[in-house]
Design a protein around this nucleic acid. Structure first.
Length: 423
RNA sequence: GGAGAGGUGGCUGAGUGGUCGAUAGCGGCGGUCUCGAAAACCGUUAUACCCGCGAGGGUAUCCAGGGUUCGAAUCCCUGCCUCUCCGCCA
């Protein structure tokens, strides 16, 4: 969340930033509630001071066996007033808190301003589209023919948008997960973690999925647990409500999790094959860093995601998202889009974002810059490295042969029992 | 799932209604001593918020949330978590 002090002192820039994020939250209302809250607190604390002093006196009188009936009666009225104030404060803080949780992070000054993805900016490309002397097929045709996945039976056992990977498809999925993790651990210096796939509401609020995006996620029947939509959620929250020592920052963590998303409202739109599914695998990088280096760190993490595509030899482009297309919690974001010749599109396989101190504030994650100094909020970042299904699409479609087979990229062969060709 | 025990400052651990943000020890930091270190001794040791230009003042926090009371670490209720035993189980 945003610092209420910052909102109070910079209402105009907050309003502008929020508008650039396409949010209609009422900032003036927040400022009014904050004013009201402070008024109540001030009055209430004065009463408490009075009561604390009187309680001390009553204690002394009792000790000296004096009669304190009058003092006790007087404090009863003070106590009642404090209770009234507390009740009012609860109401005001509840409303203020709920509103603050709905305020998006402000876009960074370098983030292009724009309503939607049409204002996104292509930053660079790597490689080039492969040339085929035949018409490249879509992954759903090749993959099905090669027995890599079974859409019908996936839908039968779970529903549409759930994939049953089979044979080489299942092997490829597992190989990619291991390959991604190994690269990030051995070459990029991340620590591997394996978090729970179900999290509580507090955790989901910490990274910013709740309360706004509740309808995009799967909630379990007990109403307290949610299926993770990304490893960002459990991993970024690992140190929530803690104060990290100076030597504990930066933290670089990488994790594999399945990701569960309802994709409400996305039905029928670019959903064919593996393009958009309710459960998919992803390897996610998370960085907890000092504020002064976070934008440099964003370039670093983006580079780490890119290196995976480069090792796989897949052509991609880097797109910087416009303010209106950036996620709720982010200030700046780069998407990596890989070329998929079968479907004839660039597909998003990674999203690398800086969240500044927005998530750290929500989850009360702090660190001490140096021994003896006051704790401050670090910046958090994450980047997919990478999301699996669209990477699988890109491999199938880019590495397909005229006779309907797939050449396994060399870096994956050790992870696939030496398999060189699927089919 | 059943039965029991428990959650106090960085750690250990006192404290069952009243000047308790909290005794003590350890650890950390500073100092005395020393050529230096150890030992000993002395001092110090959290977080958040509110008011104030500031000096400073105030409030809250003993797992969390409610309640009782003039007053709660202490009593009551609910929740969460940990530990022990039993049961079940990949």
């Amino acid at each position: 969340m945003l610092d209420i002090k910052y909102i109070r002192e910079n209402p105009d820039s907050v309003k502008q930033g929020v508008a650039n994020k396409n949010s209609k939250i009422d900032i003036d209302k927040i400022i009014d509630l904050d004013r009201e809250r402070r008024d109540i607190v001030t009055g209430m604390e004065a009463l408490r001071e009075k009561r604390n002093k009187a309680s001390g006196e009553i204690a002394v009188m009792k000790k000296n066996k004096q009669d304190a009936t009058a003092q006790i009666a007087a404090m009863k009225a003070v106590g009642d007033q404090i209770s009234t104030d507390e009740e009012r404060l609860r109401v005001v803080e509840e409303e203020l808190g709920q509103m603050l949780l709905m305020v998006p992070n402000l876009p960074h000054e370098t983030t292009p301003v724009g309503r939607d993805e049409s204002a996104n900016v292509e930053i660079r490309q790597w490689g080039s589209k492969p040339k085929f002397d035949f018409t490249p097929q879509a992954h759903w045709d090749i993959g099905t023919k090669l027995g890599m996945f079974d859409f019908e039976r996936g839908a039968k056992i779970s529903g549409s948008g759930f994939i049953l990977y089979t044979n080489a498809g299942a092997l490829l999925e597992r190989a990619l997960i291991n390959f991604f993790l190994d690269v990030h651990v051995t070459r990029h210096g991340y620590t591997e973690v394996f978090p729970p796939f179900m999290v509580n509401t507090q955790t989901m609020t910490g990274t910013g999925q709740l309360p706004k995006m509740a309808e995009d996620m799967y909630q379990l029947n007990d109403q307290t647990m949610w299926l993770v939509p990304t490893a960002e959620v459990p991993v970024t929250n690992i140190y929530a409500n803690e104060i990290l020592a100076p030597t504990d920052v930066p933290k670089y963590m990488v994790a594999y999790t399945p990701c569960f998303r309802r994709e409400a409202g996305a039905a029928g739109k670019d959903t064919r094959g593996l393009i958009r599914v309710h459960q998919f695998d992803k390897v996610e990088m998370v960085r907890i860093v000092r504020p002064e280096v976070s934008y440099q760190e964003l370039d670093t993490i983006t580079g780490h995601a890119e290196s995976i595509l480069q090792l796989l030899g897949l052509h991609y482009r880097v797109v910087e998202l416009a303010s209106g297309d950036i996620s709720f919690a982010a200030t700046k974001c780069y998407d990596l889009e890989v070329w998929a010749p079968g479907v004839g599109k660039y597909l998003e396989v990674s999203s690398c974002s800086n969240f500044s101190d927005f998530q750290a504030r929500r989850m009360n994650l702090r660190y001490r810059p140096a021994e003896g100094e006051k704790p401050v909020f670090p910046h958090t970042l994450n980047g997919s490295g990478l999301a699996l299904p669209r990477t699988v699409i890109a491999i199938i479609e880019n590495y397909q042969t005229a006779d309907g087979k797939i050449v396994v990229p060399e870096v994956l062969r050790p992870y696939m029992r030496g398999l060189e060709v699927i089919g």
